[in-house]
Amino acid sequence: MRLLREAGHLVRVALVLAAGVVLFLIIRNAVVPKDFGRYGHFRPEALGVIRAHPVAFAGQSTCVACHDDQAKERAAGKHAHVACEACHGPQAAHVADIANVKPALPDVATLCARCHEKNAAKPKSFPQVVTAEHSGGVACNTCHKPHNPQI
């Protein structure tokens, strides 16, 4: 009993520490998102937040749904497996508002060269030219139709 009285101040320290732990547990319980850890150590809501990001590229099937004439032309040629938006850029905004958002026509001079300008690092089988020698500055689409590039 005497020992307990002489150690009274230590009990106070223990109480202060215990009060801190209890306070921490209460706050933790109140603040941690309720379903945290449902699928792993993260907030499941994060999946929804990330999925909510808007789409910029509408996707091949969406383009073809309307532009089937171009799709047919392309399917007959070497560009059959090149998606529309690979050249025309992201068009989800156009899909969402067809009347007001019109896709800009790609600039042939830079567009074709990006893929077909000769570069030793490109696969040997891939069709490539030194544009300056090949056309001497004449625009590619003078001879080649972009959707079916065969002359």
Binding site: F57, A86, C87
Partner: peptide
């Protein structure tokens, strides 16, 4: 988006 835009697959 990268796969959609890749011209060669």
């Amino acid at each position: 988006a990268c796969c959609e835009a890749c011209p060669t697959g």
